[in-house]
Simulated scan of single mutants.
Amino acid sequence: MSTPWILGLTGGIGSGKSAAAEHFTRLGVHLIDADHAARWVVEPGRPALARIAEHFGPHVLQPDGQLDRGALRQLIFQDEQQRRWLESLLHPLIGEEIRSYLARAESPYAILVSPLLIESGQHHMTQRVLVVDVPEHLQLQRTMARDQVSEEQIKAILSAQATREERLRQAHDVLHNDRDPAWLRCEVERLHHFYLTLRGGQP
């Protein structure tokens, strides 16, 4: 059996990349979410968690020993240097986790879903990049409705992500997700049929 080629799937916060990813899995495509890999590498008992607690102090841990993501997020969004320190610790570990999962995939192509596909350099693990794209006002509207957070918080997250232009520059394919869920599913199916015709991610 031939090794699957890897599609990178990305999009800004509130773009609908998770909904798109979910539909790809319904079509039988193996997929790993970089956010899930990021959670696995900081589980209790893993070396990364001990390093984080040592660096930031015990207040970034919950009483049960799990990472307190909220406390850590506050620290790193206020301090660029701390964010870089954390990224340099976690990105290589997340990369290893992703690679080992993708190596076991059995569909004709496999997907790496990552909000930071471009910024983290994870797109180098892929042969093709699909960007789920929406105008910024829709990103804000959808994320505020979904997460019940302020516009300021969302804008802070947006500023830490690649700009829409940067993402689109790296894209081989763009899925414009500015309509309803049925449209999104049709677009995913159209892309899926196209991807099944590709070898190594190239036409």
Rank of each mutant, 00 (worst) to 15 (best):
A160V: 07
G121N: 03
L138P: 12
Q78Y: 00
W5N: 06
L89F: 02
R199C: 00
G28V: 15
V149Q: 03
W40S: 13
D173I: 11
E97V: 11
A182T: 14
T10V: 11
Q139S: 10
V29A: 11
M125K: 08
Q66G: 08
F194C: 12
R190E: 14
S88H: 10
Q78R: 10
D68C: 11
R46D: 03
Y195K: 07
Q127M: 01
H123Q: 09
L196E: 14
T163I: 00
Q170R: 13
Q127K: 11
N177A: 05
C186Q: 15
G11E: 11
L31G: 14
I13W: 00
L140N: 07
H36N: 15
L158Y: 00
G95Q: 10
Y109Q: 13
R84I: 02
R69V: 09
E151R: 13
E152T: 15
A50P: 00
T25N: 08
G11K: 12
V131C: 01
A162D: 03
R185P: 08
P58I: 06
E166S: 05
E189I: 09
L117N: 10
E22M: 09
E87S: 03
S88A: 07
E187C: 12
I157K: 01
G45Y: 00
H30Q: 15
P44M: 08
R169P: 01
D173F: 09
L198R: 12
Q148D: 06
A71T: 11
S18N: 12
G200F: 02
L90A: 02
R142V: 10
R146K: 07
V131L: 00
L86I: 02
E96C: 02
M1V: 14
C186T: 14
R73T: 12
E54T: 13
S2M: 08
G16T: 10
R99D: 04
I94M: 00
F77Q: 05
L90S: 01
S2A: 11
S107K: 04
L93E: 11
D33K: 07
Y109G: 12
A103G: 04
G11P: 07
L75C: 03
E189L: 12
D173E: 13
G57K: 09
A71Y: 02
L7H: 11
R199V: 13
Q78T: 11
Q66M: 09
F194V: 15
E152Y: 03
L112C: 11
I32D: 09
L89S: 04
V149S: 06
G65M: 09
A156R: 09
I13M: 05
A171E: 05
A50G: 14
G95V: 00
T3P: 04
R46P: 05
W85P: 08
T126S: 03
A20W: 10
T143R: 03
K17G: 12
L86K: 04
Q153R: 06
I76C: 03
R167G: 00
P47I: 09
